[in-house]
Design a protein around this nucleic acid. Sequence first.
DNA 1: CGCCAGGTTGATTTCGCTCAAGCAATGTGG
DNA 2: CCACATTGCTTGAGCGAAATCAACCTGGCG
Lengths: 216, 216
Amino acid sequence: VLSARELTLINDGKIAREYLPGDVVYHQGDPANGIHCVESGLVGLRRLDAEGNSVLVRLAYAGDTIGYRALLAGEAQRLGAEALKPSTVCFIDQATVRGLLQTNPALGLRFLKRASKDLGDIEDKFVQSATLDIKARLAHLLLVLKERCATAGANGELILELPISRQDLAAMVGVRPETMSRTIRQLEDEGVAFFSGRKVRVPKLDTLIEQIDLDG
Amino acid sequence: VLSARELTLINDGKIAREYLPGDVVYHQGDPANGIHCVESGLVGLRRLDAEGNSVLVRLAYAGDTIGYRALLAGEAQRLGAEALKPSTVCFIDQATVRGLLQTNPALGLRFLKRASKDLGDIEDKFVQSATLDIKARLAHLLLVLKERCATAGANGELILELPISRQDLAAMVGVRPETMSRTIRQLEDEGVAFFSGRKVRVPKLDTLIEQIDLDG
DNA sequence: CGCCAGGTTGATTTCGCTCAAGCAATGTGG
DNA sequence: CCACATTGCTTGAGCGAAATCAACCTGGCG
């Protein structure tokens, strides 16, 4: 939605950086002095609480914009951003962002749509964590990851290449790593999904979907 | 942020309606063909799941705009809206909304800020439901309600007039009504807060705040 | 008066957390 | 090249918090 002139404005103003897994893009609590764009790789947005528990709230893939919420709400970052894979992330200064938003209303609407989408997604996560049990939440997470990480599925089988560790899988579902282990085992015992390293084999997609409704 | 002409445009286009407690403003799953504005009263935004469990995600007070998320994201309503008190809610057609957003960029930015705020709030709720125990979540909820429902606080005491039933209190924290009862009892036994109907007396605000950090 | 919805209480069970140990893969230094 | 720490994951035993099931109040209200 941007004009050529605006694009060059961004290109001049942006600062790209490389991050290795574990590197911090910004800390939770940092003031928002711009937005970040994931150009390649994968970035995790997580919240750490006082006791050191971490909740992985969202994953940002290539093309996603992160940190915009804090800037637009005029708050500090509530979530920290950390590279989960080797990534290139660029930074756009808040002055540039605000300037663009002033001059290009269509950009604002784009952001608005994006924020509305994110808002709906997190509402879902919230409701699910309140009503679904762990197995169902894990099944749902796998279905979401399927959209991004599905690899060759021979004869109806589904193969996923998970982008994150077990610990982070647990942090996304909001449980302890031990519990994640047990839940994975449970899915395997029931023949729903088979985990090997970061690969997951799902013989029948339907059985995975059933887990969500059949709650307990 | 609106011009006089725009205001009259809205006033011509809007349709106001009265709702009694329990009346549905719109159903979850409805297509979004406009936005609603709470002019007076109180509206609850809730999600019902297959088993009939209800989660009360947000409260909308006078002046709040609801249903905007679905319209802007181009989705169906993920949450249903239901009057919790006698309320006046007006409806603004999507054509009018889109028109205004096109012509008045500042309005879009307002929405953007609002969405960013909502997004942060629900992120908080999500993280809290994953890390805090029930007593802490209830304490937090009371602190939030304090901003809206605090009445005369004699000599350091705090008196709240809750706008919602116990059931809905439970639905906001994401627990069963029975558990809410017990948790309330617990707070009373500990001298933190005393419930009588919809009135809550908090002798010392500090002790309420402590409940949030002291987790278990 | 009887009915009914909302709320409280009790007994029991289930689920997920805690604490603790064991294991495999990787890395590091002697 | 091997002893050894480290890290990520799995497994087990026990516990505690919340759900469930069920009974029983309580206050309107026809």
